[in-house]
């Protein structure tokens, strides 16, 4: 029994980090008032850039390129949503579509392959896991502290709730949102880079295969708090580890609950939790509303 639990814990520590990084990043963006359904595209950019860069340099440096790529996609999102006041959901979904196609295109153009990029040098292991695992434990605590305990975090939260009040205090709302989005993109990019550099050792053509949307679900599930989102992400990863563990150790489980239903469970749970929650409780009040500093 204990052995089983330890095995589960190990697979959660391997599976959760991509989701944790991306979910915490999504929290940063949305607390500033900008919807981020583009996490999937940002993760894909990070996964591709990191795996490609790591071919030419040490893998840890490649991770930085993954973060940069995620932030670059987020910069386009910020340009459209913050600067040009475009619809934030449209921009996010458009970025997802572009990155999906661009990833496939670049894979073919650079590596002449439609399935994956060449292998890279693996990351070292610390205490049996990739260093990114331990970074994923620290990041939510850090981001939570920044959002909840620093003056910048207070302004960030206010920009998502009542941007006019922030502007009246002489703080530039849109600059806050730019910063939050860039950080959000960098974290999503790191999540993607974790997929291609730690979970696997190359970029797979379908990465991140819906994990970005799962991260958005974790953010909602975790009530737009960094710790909550990270816990929800870990919970999803735990569910996944449990499923994989159960299926390999006791395949007869699938006679009672089919694989597809188990895979759909996190999404269904998120939906149920949303439906049971009091109306309009947790989402930032100004979420999705562009801020025009000239219209005050």
């Amino acid at each position: 029994m204990i052995e089983l639990l330890v095995a589960l814990l190990h697979s959660v520590l391997d599976a959760a980090p991509p989701l944790v990084f991306a979910a915490v990043g999504a929290v940063l963006a949305e607390r500033s008032g900008v919807v981020n359904v583009g996490v999937e595209g940002m993760m894909r950019a990070g996964a591709f850039a990191a795996a490609t860069a790591a071919l030419a340099m040490p893998t840890p440096l490649g991770l930085l390129f993954g973060m940069l790529a995620g932030a670059a996609v987020a910069a386009v999102h910020a340009l459209l949503c913050v600067q040009l006041r475009a619809d934030q959901v449209v921009s996010g979904m458009a970025l997802n579509l572009v990155m999906l196609a661009l990833g496939t295109f670049l894979l073919e153009a650079l590596f002449n392959s439609s399935s994956g990029s060449p292998q890279i040098a693996p990351l070292p292991k610390w205490l049996g896991h990739s260093p990114l695992t331990w970074l994923a434990v620290l990041t939510p605590l850090l981001v939570h502290a920044v959002i909840q305990r620093t003056p910048w975090g207070l302004r960030l939260r206010a920009a998502g709730e009542k941007p006019l009040a922030v502007a009246a205090r002489g703080v530039r709302v849109n600059r806050l949102r730019w910063t939050a989005l860039l950080a959000s993109g960098a974290l999503a990019g790191l999540g993607g880079a974790t997929l291609s550099c730690a979970t696997l050792d190359h970029f797979e053509h379908h990465m991140p295969a819906g994990l970005g949307f799962m991260a958005v679900a974790a953010m909602v599930f975790g009530r737009w708090s960094a710790l909550g989102a990270a816990l929800a992400a870990t919970f999803f990863a735990f569910g996944d580890a449990l499923r994989i563990g159960l299926v390999s150790s006791a395949p007869q489980v699938l006679d009672y609950v089919p694989q597809g239903v188990l895979l759909a469970l996190p999404y269904a749970l998120t939906l149920v939790v949303l439906a049971l929650r009091p109306r309009g409780g947790d989402a930032p009040k100004a979420l999705g509303q562009p801020f025009d500093p000239e219209l005050r």
């Binding site: 949307f213 799962m214 089919p258 694989q259 597809g260 239903v261």
Partner: peptide, 18 residues
């Protein structure tokens, strides 16, 4: 937006994977 994203993945998993 959130509920339809969730329902997409529910449909995909239940139909394609089951």
């Amino acid at each position: 937006v959130i509920s339809t994203i969730m329902l997409n993945w529910i449909a995909l998993n239940v139909v394609d994977n089951w």
